[in-house]
Design a binder for these strands. Sequence first.
DNA 1: CGTATAATTGACCCGGCTCAATTCCAGTGG
DNA 2: CCACTGGAATTGAGCCGGGTCAATTATACG
Lengths: 187, 187
Amino acid sequence: MHSILSFLNPDLPEDKILLEDFNSKIQFKSFQKGRLLYRPGSRCNHLYFVQKGLVRASYFKKGKDVSCHFTKEGQVCTAIDAFFQRTPTQYQLEFLEDSDLVEISYSDLHELFERYPKFNNYGRELMIQEYGILVERLNHLQFYTAKERYAFFMEEHRDLFQRVSLGHIASYLGISQETLSRIRNNQ
Amino acid sequence: MHSILSFLNPDLPEDKILLEDFNSKIQFKSFQKGRLLYRPGSRCNHLYFVQKGLVRASYFKKGKDVSCHFTKEGQVCTAIDAFFQRTPTQYQLEFLEDSDLVEISYSDLHELFERYPKFNNYGRELMIQEYGILVERLNHLQFYTAKERYAFFMEEHRDLFQRVSLGHIASYLGISQETLSRIRNNQ
DNA sequence: CGTATAATTGACCCGGCTCAATTCCAGTGG
DNA sequence: CCACTGGAATTGAGCCGGGTCAATTATACG
């Protein structure tokens, strides 16, 4: 079973049906490191579950590439607002490692929403999760120094630090690469 | 009809039913300036539509009262994450003016979600809207100077500037009150 | 092994914060 | 109607976190 659907209990007949239905709609896809999942302006017609690998979301701002999201195994990956709003995304999604994804289309997902009351809150749940992450980032940016933000990141995502380049993390944290380098080494 | 439900077409029989159902579930409430809708730690069991008035959401951070949201007439008001997650809110909601609200309970809203497919996306829509606002605030905080953020705010919410004290706006923008005062007067 | 990309280090500067002192109001009571 | 008072806004002085620019070094890849 996909960790995403861990709220289901396959012993319950109704959940089993949901699960089978879900399985009939998904596809497995693999991508190589460096490939792009979306470019700015793309339509986001699918939701992805990362089974293996790492995806970086970013956008261009004042001539610089700014990271805004990292998605690793076990997490859901798409441009969440564009996906649910059916608008082109402003982000670029890029694989930082060779990755395996599970793909489901917007329309199939909606069929599941309508068919299974239990599944129905799922989209909202996703949004709430992302919302929470954003609230925390805003909070950090507004009230904590670069050094503190680095410390928070290391607490929460130590593993990513090995897998993502310094510059990408710096822009994610809203710090210049030079400053992050100094912070990391000074102490 | 409530502007909130403007996506409905009362000429359609099915929308008419939805609307009647909705109307049977709501209550009208009035609050005086200075009163609190929620304190930190409150359960948010209701969603509110502001018909008249102004509500400020805030929280305490490092000994200071920090504004994070203003809700004026025509907008939806609650601690959106806490409401949908059924957890206590961390925010305080305070009326800055005498206000009239429409109230609907979480359980009644969910009944509507389950009863009307058309209404079902509504909760997600709400989340997406709030998400978008947050994305923009983060963007501003990360890339624009205090002066620029003030300019954005004035472009978008000039009316609020008359209705909200300088200190509240400053903390909302992530600027000290002194700096905002200087910005406002220097030019 | 050479070239390109990422990371480090130094020098310099400035936006915006803090602390402290006034000044400006709006509301209250005599 | 005016004086008093507490909160909000303004203004000044001084400081520092973190940005930019530029040069150097480390790392990865064909």
